[in-house]
Amino acid sequence: MLNMIKLDWLGMKVYHRRFMIIPLAISLYGFFHVAVIIPMLVYMFFSFSVNPFAVEEKGKLDNLYLTLPVTRRSIVKARFGLSLLMLSIGLAAGIILTVTLSALFYGRTIIYPRTFHADFPAMLLIICASVLFYAILNLSTFPTLFKLGYAKGKLIGFILPIGFVSVVIAALFVLWSAVDTFQEWLMSAVAWASGNAVLVAVIMSAASALLLAVSYALSQKVYAQREF
């Protein structure tokens, strides 16, 4: 599987230089709130893990794989492996940055000057929520791209889910700033979650594992049937 992951990585060579966007993006997200650095990094690294699909049709990466002594199962496994590796990198970088910024500036930013303490319950919840976010994106993206390929599947398999997530986030921001009761409700929900951080984390982790398992099983099924 490691060789397949390496080949996936090499296959998206044309996208490698886009990794340079990450420091810029982190700085931008950091202006809003330190707490969004982890989910946004997870999102960015997730987007990078979709790149092998993007190159597969132009460069016929799948056709290359099918001429090599590897099974279709191992191709799917490797692409999930690469994606989980990207998730781990995003999480690790995000945790280091969040903890550091929280320690240095008490989590205050230019746009959001209130303090944020990256204590254990807060970090646990942010990490688990980010992984759940990743799992939802993975389920809405990977099986479709494995079935249809990037050219045919990117609209329903990538652009629409990303667009939907963006709309939800924008709606939350609007509600946060326009509706006082929503702000109160959200804060009390966050407070409750912080008080029951382990329970909430377990529930979110279980949900993430379930979504990823479904995504993996679906991807294996559709890719086994795909024709090139």
Binding site: L10, K13, V14, V55, G59, K60, L61, N63, L64, T67
Partner: peptide, 11 residues
Amino acid sequence: PYFQEDWTPLD
């Protein structure tokens, strides 16, 4: 051949 456009023979 199904090699990627940016690959060199070494890649």
